[in-house]
Amino acid sequence: MNNPTDSTSHDEHCRVNRLCIEATSAASASISHEIMNILAIINESAGLLEDLSLMAAPDEGIPAERITTTAAAIMKQVSRANQIMKWFNKLAHCGDAPRARTDIAGTIQLVVALANRQAAMKKLSVSTGDLSTAEIESDLLCLVSLLYMVLRRLYETVGTEGEISIAAKPEGSDITVSFTAHHRNEQVNLNSFPNHREKTLAAHLKANFSHNGEALQLTLPPTLPQD
């Protein structure tokens, strides 16, 4: 983040921090909700095994098929939680340094994973087609917060069962991330992007929003200039 040198940059610093906290809090809340669901399934599965053992006749035990089916259900949820926690751990480490090198493809995949539950709730199809493997040096926490904010609002904008496509490609030394959205084969107008909050984070990242046809584009510099 910036080292505030005057009241204006201090105010901006506070606004950016606040927005980053809001974005990461929203992601954390969503993840904790999903983990609660996973724990609830494991809890019911374990309870079912207990029920079956209490009901079993002393000399017969629980049918093996019931045990293997229930055990498989538990293992599936452990695997699901493990994947979610890996992404959550990546998010948690985004704030380790004020600036860091990151590959844009990995960052987009992280953000898509963090917003996966919202996409599922709205039955959205989210594809990450052409993702550049180029690296940029940026304020990673702010970048993830901005991309997450844009994605969440895109999900609200596109409507149920919509399709969202995200791409990232180099343009000169910059990286341009493009978002397009379709609903029932019609392209969704994204002119409501960016809003004031998204502009604030983009300004901090020295990034620019633009529209290319119906696509929303975010152009990121290869290196965040020193203040």
């Binding site: 399934i41 019911e44 599965s45 309870g47 029920d51 259900a73």
Partner: peptide, 17 residues
């Protein structure tokens, strides 16, 4: 509940009761 496995397992346990 949209968590299918949660709902179905809870249903099984309630049915047993």
């Amino acid at each position: 509940d949209d968590e299918v496995e949660f709902a179905s397992t809870l249903a099984t346990r309630l049915n047993l009761r």
